[in-house]
């Protein structure tokens, strides 16, 4: 059996792991961008024509909503990455 093979396999595995990680980052960061810079800043005026409770919607995203989404995003990331680590056997202890 040649010794290079397991090494190459390990490298492939690491690459696949990294690519999945990057895909997760792309998904989460686009949401991060859309709620804050999108809903809270760029499209704020349009959204302000809608109201939830006493809040104009764009204003709500800028001062409340985006922060809630940020917290959720990190916890989703934690879950996804723990699962991914587990699948690849990269989790610690």
């Amino acid at each position: 059996m040649n010794t290079e093979k397991p090494q190459k396999q390990a490298a492939d595995k690491a690459t696949r792991y990294w690519k999945t990680n990057l895909r997760y980052l792309a998904i989460l960061l686009s949401i991060w961008f859309s709620v804050s810079f999108g809903a809270g800043i760029l499209f704020r005026e349009g959204l302000d024509t809608f109201e939830i409770g006493g809040f104009p919607l764009g204003f709500w995203f800028a001062q409340q909503g985006s922060i809630y989404v940020f917290v959720i995003l990190i916890f989703v990331y934690v879950r996804w990455m723990n699962r991914l680590d587990n699948q690849y056997g990269f989790d610690e202890d």
Binding site: L25, S36, F59, A62, Q63, I67, F70, L73, I74
Partner: peptide
């Protein structure tokens, strides 16, 4: 007023970057 959002989003949104891109 609304402009205060720069601090609210700015000083919390950085944690998403920190958690996803740097800390681990």
């Amino acid at each position: 007023g609304y402009d205060g959002a720069v601090y609210l989003m700015g000083w919390t949104g950085g944690y998403v970057l920190l958690a996803l891109l740097l800390a681990p």
